[in-house]
Structures are given as C-alpha cells and as structure tokens.
C-alpha cells in the first residue's frame, strides 16, 4: 500500500509543494522548453494551488458542524444544477462565503465543480472550474463584512462573480485553444456566447435579489442553533 504514512514527511511535502514546486513548474515550463506550453503549465499551476489550499485545510481543526454545512451547501448547489432554469453554484458559494467564511466558500465552490463533473464529465477544465469557483468563494469571504451589510453590494458581487467565472473560463478556453484558433475566432466565439452570458447573469441577479437573504437567514439560524 502506498501511503505517505510518515506525518513529518507529509508536513515537509506540504510546505515543499507550494514553495518549491509552483515556481519550479513555471520556470521549467517557460525556460526549459523555451516555447509556450501554456496549457500544461496552467493546469499544473492550478492543481498545485488547489493542493496548497487543501493542505492548509487539512492542517486546521474544523468543527464537525462546519464540515457538515460545507458538505450540505455543496450538495445543494450540485443538486440545484439539475433543477430547470437554476444555476445556483455561484450563489451558494457566495452565500456560504459571506455567512460561514472564505475557506468554506472556497470549498463549496471547488467541490461543486469537482462533483458536478462526475455527472457532466471530468476534463482538463475541472481544475479550472474548481479554481474559479473556489476563488469566488474566497474573495466573497474577504468581502463578507460589506456584503452582509448591503443587499445591493451582495447582488452586485453575485453578478460580477458570475461574469468573472465566465471570464476565467473563457481565459482558459483561450489557453486551451492557444495558437489553434486565432484571436478573431476567439472573439467571435465570445460574441456568440453573449446571449448565454446575459441569461446566466440574469439568473444570478434574480437568485441573489430574491434568495440570498432568506438563505442567509436560514444559515444564520443553524449557526446559532448548533453553535458553529
């Protein structure tokens, strides 16, 4: 059985991976191969940054109920993807981030992407989706003070986050199609995606305007009742 049994070795690896490997991959990618292999490098960097986050999460002591809330919010956002018209991943990620914290938000976003893809198919896009939604959660957690206070701010952040997600994924598509399809084609594809983006933003807008507050209240109640 291959397991890193030795705890101190695991610790070393945990520190070594982010601080040595991430730059190493970039340096290796850019200098050693001289020419661009953006796709591979970006995948490697993203995976390493996810690992970095996970190792940080592993080290911390997390209460059982916090853990459960993250699992529940993730499962809800995955299940919500099957309800017609609904695309609640961004919304659930942001709500969790605002009411429970950035780390929880990151986990909900990243895990929703990973788990949805067990149904929609894993691909090189999985780490990017994990990263994009995770970051939406993380940033939402950082801004939680403002987002909790003002509903308008929350709605704006929700819509912007939705757009940012599209942008990150489009950026990824740019890398993926690097040198294969030219910039014009890429822009053309962006233009064709506009209606979809509008629908997506509208659904986000609606979701945040209508449901962010009641859902937040539900979370707050559970937090109080169970002492999270």
């Amino acid at each position: 059985m291959i397991t890193i049994k030795n705890a101190s070795l695991r610790k070393v690896l945990r520190i070594a991976i982010p601080f040595a490997l991430v730059p190493a991959v970039i340096v290796a990618g850019v200098y050693l191969f001289k020419e661009n292999s953006y796709m591979l490098i970006s995948v490697a960097v993203i995976i390493l940054s996810l690992l970095l986050f996970i190792s940080g999460f592993e080290k911390k002591k997390t209460g059982t109920r916090r853990l459960i809330i993250v699992a529940i919010m993730t499962a809800l956002s995955v299940v919500g993807r099957f309800i017609p018209v609904f695309k609640p991943v961004t919304a659930m990620t942001v709500i969790t981030a605002v009411y429970i914290g950035g780390e929880a938000g990151f986990l909900v976003g990243a895990m929703s992407a990973l788990i949805s893809n067990f149904w929609f198919g894993q691909g090189p896009w999985t780490p990017f989706q994990m990263f994009a939604w995770g970051m939406i959660g993380l940033v939402g957690g950082l801004l939680s003070k403002y987002l909790k206070k003002s509903r308008v701010a929350l709605v704006i952040y929700g819509v912007v986050a939705g757009l940012a997600y599209s942008l990150i994924m489009d950026f990824w598509a740019l890398i993926w199609n690097n040198e294969i399809i030219s910039m014009e084609a890429y822009l053309a594809s962006l233009v064709t995606a506009i209606p979809y983006t509008i629908v997506y933003s509208a659904s986000n807008l609606m979701f945040f305007a209508l449901l962010a507050k009641p859902f937040g209240e539900k979370l707050e109640r559970v937090k109080l009742k169970y002492g999270v």
Binding site: I54, S55, L67, A75, V78, M111, I115
Partner: peptide, 18 residues
C-alpha cells in the same frame, strides 16, 4: 484520502448527500 483525509471525508459526505 492519501493526500488529505479530511478533504476526502468532506467529499465523501457530499457524495452521500447528493
């Protein structure tokens, strides 16, 4: 689970919930 037992657990819980 070999990298992070805790992350694996929370993932397993989610997969149970879905």
């Amino acid at each position: 689970g070999n990298i992070s037992p805790k992350f694996a657990l929370i993932l397993s819980m989610t997969l149970r919930y879905v």
